[in-house]
């Protein structure tokens, strides 16, 4: 990723001091420090539990969770039925659970129906299965265009839908988050769950992509 950490443009103080003291962090960093130190003093948060949570989201909760759910659904029809009936519960079977008491509804892509997920108001997202949302999901253009011009959005992501395919757009809320169950790619009949999970991309579970085609082994 080309995104670096920038500190310019948000200096907390105007004068250009000599640099013997520590660099003063950016304004938002200072505000977070202020808030965190007050909350810790009040005993409302424990710094170690904050670090643990951050590590969880940075390294362990991400789209690989969702990919395992999808691969299970592709290989186990009974699981798939439970997943489509009660998404949150079926996801919990694999050990992934939300912290906000939200429900996760799983919507299935078929040759006739393609599903696309958005949160028009903010960026509600199925954290337990996909981790935290990518930048574009949080952007105003995606949030508005997914509703106004969903086929155009899909095209931009490289997905060309036939005119006969019905496109359903799901607007997430704080109570209900959506995840797409992509179609199982052709040519994957012999693959096990692990190899199938490798074909499931984050974008395919948001609905802006398709599951990958299997690599042809020579």
């Amino acid at each position: 990723m080309g995104e670096g950490h920038h500190h310019h443009g948000s200096q907390a103080h105007g004068e250009d001091h000599d640099h013997h003291h520590s660099d003063v962090p950016s304004d938002p960093a200072l505000r977070v420090k202020a808030l965190e130190s007050l909350l810790v003093e009040k005993g409302l948060v424990d710094p170690a539990s904050l670090d643990y949570l951050i590590d969880l989201y940075e390294t362990r909760i991400g789209p690989r969770n969702g990919a395992r759910v999808v691969a299970r659904a592709w290989t186990d029809p009974a699981y798939k039925a439970r997943l489509l009936a009660k998404g949150g519960l079926a996801i919990k079977e694999l050990g992934y659970e939300g912290r906000q008491g939200e429900d996760i509804v799983v919507v299935e892509n078929t040759p006739a129906v393609h599903n696309l997920v958005v949160c028009t108001l903010c960026s509600c997202y199925p954290w337990p299965v996909l981790g935290l949302p990518p930048v574009w999901y949080k952007s105003a253009p995606y949030r508005s265009r997914a509703v106004i011009d969903p086929r155009g959005v899909l095209r931009e992501f490289g997905v060309e839908l036939g005119g006969e395919v019905e496109l359903r757009v799901w607007d997430s809320t704080s109570e209900v988050r959506y995840m797409v169950l992509p179609q199982r790619p052709p040519g994957t009949e012999g693959l096990g769950e692990e190899s199938l999970a490798d074909l499931v991309t984050r974008d395919s579970m948001i609905g802006v992509g398709l599951a990958l085609a299997p690599k042809v082994t020579a």
Binding site: L35, L39, L53, E58
Partner: peptide, 10 residues
Amino acid sequence: AQAFALTVKL
């Protein structure tokens, strides 16, 4: 990350 974690904890 800290702002996120504080929110979840609160």
